[in-house]
Simulated scan of single mutants.
Amino acid sequence: MTDCGTGISAELVHDLLQDQHPDLAGLPVREVAGGWGNQMWRLGDELAVRMPRMEGAPDLLRKECRWLPVLAPRLPLPVPTPVRIGEPSARFPWPWSVMTWVHGEPLDHTSISRGDHAADTLAGFLRALHVAAPAEAPASSDRGAHPRKCTDGFEYFLQAIAPRGLAADVHAVRAVWDDAVAAPEWAGPPVWLHGDLHPANVVVSDGTLSGVIDFDAMFAGDPAWDLAAAWLLLPAGAGPRFFEAYALADDATVRRARGLAAMKSLFLILMGQNGDRGLPGGKPAWGPAGRAALGRLTSGFGRSS
C-alpha cells in the first residue's frame, strides 16, 4: 500500500495553497492528530485541508467532493463540505481538498452526557440522510452486504480478539451475530448512508452530538449499516429513544443493525490493541469504545438494549 503521508508538512500545505488557492494561503496551518486514509490540517478557524496519504484515498476524497454538496443542505447537523479542490501537481501527486471545519471533540476522546438529546439528534440526522439514493450514487466494495455475507470478517475479528478478552460473553456476541445473519434482507430501495459511523467520526459539544465527519465511506444501501450507531455511539439506555425517534426501522433491520454493531465493535477493539494482533495504525482510544458497545449489545436483543 502506497503511503504518501510521511512527506506531508505544514510547509507543503502552505505551498500548495499558495500555488492553487493563494487567497487562502495567509491563514495559519496546524496539524490535526488522528486520521487514517487522510491527514488533516486546520486552516484558520473555520476550514481544514484534507490530504490523502494512502492509495485509494484520492478516489474517496473525490467522492466526498462530488456528493457532500448534494447531501449537506438537508442534514440537520454540521458536516464537512468542500470549499476548494486541489489538483495533483509536481509538489503532491494526489488531489486534496479544503473543507469546512466541524467544531467539537471527537467522541473517542470524550463522552455523551445528554443521552436522550443525543438519541434524538442522531435519529433526526439519520432520518434526513436515509432517503432513496439516485441510480448514480456510489456503491461500496467492503460495506453494505447482508451480515451473512460478512461472516468471514466477523470470525476474523472475533478470533483475533478473543484470546485477549472481550469484557463480554463470547457466546452472547455470537448470538447477536447469528440473529442478524438469520434476519431477512433489506427489501427497500438503497438509501444514502454515511457508512462508517463510529466514535471517531462524530463530534460532541455540551454533552451531545454536534456534528458528523469523515464521509469518505458514503454509499447507498441497507440503513442497518448506519443504525448500528445506536449501540456504537449512544450511552446505555438511549437505544429505545433513538429507535422511537427514528421510527423507520422494522424488526429485521434492527436485528441486522445489532449484528453489524457487534462486528464494528470487534473492529474497534482490534484497532485499539497493541502488538501483532492489532491492525496497522492502532487507535488506543477505540478499544474501550468497542468494549462498551459490546456490553450494550449483549445486554438484550430488543430495542431496549
Score class of each variant (00 low, 15 high):
G7T: 10
Q18T: 14
P22W: 09
D23A: 15
R30H: 14
E31F: 00
A33S: 14
W36I: 15
W36G: 04
R50M: 13
M51I: 02
M51G: 02
P52V: 06
A57I: 07
D59N: 11
L61R: 01
L61I: 00
L61C: 05
P69I: 15
P69Q: 14
A72W: 05
L77R: 01
T81Q: 14
V83Q: 11
A90K: 00
R91K: 15
V98H: 02
M99Q: 13
T100S: 14
L107S: 12
I112M: 07
G115D: 07
D116M: 10
D116W: 11
H117T: 08
A119W: 09
T121F: 01
L126S: 10
L129T: 01
A139P: 00
G144F: 03
D152L: 00
D152F: 00
D152H: 00
F154K: 08
E155K: 09
F157K: 03
Q159V: 08
P163H: 12
D169R: 08
V176C: 05
V176T: 14
W177A: 04
A180C: 05
A182I: 04
A182H: 06
A183P: 00
P184H: 07
W186D: 11
W186F: 13
G188A: 09
G188H: 11
P190Q: 12
V191E: 11
H198E: 15
P199T: 14
A200M: 07
V203D: 12
D206S: 08
T208E: 07
G211D: 04
A217E: 08
A217I: 03
P223Q: 01
W225Q: 05
A228T: 10
A228S: 15
A229Q: 05
W231A: 09
L232D: 04
L234Y: 05
P235L: 09
A236S: 13
G237C: 07
G237H: 07
F242S: 07
L248H: 11
A249K: 01
A249S: 13
D251L: 07
T253K: 13
T253H: 14
T253F: 09
T253W: 12
V254D: 04
L260T: 06
A261D: 12
M263K: 04
I269W: 03
I269C: 05
M271Y: 02
N274Y: 05
D276T: 14
R277S: 08
G278K: 14
P280C: 10
G281H: 15
G282D: 07
P284S: 11
G290F: 02
G290D: 07
A293Q: 06
G295Y: 04
L297N: 07
L297T: 08
G302N: 10
S304C: 09
S305H: 06
S305N: 06
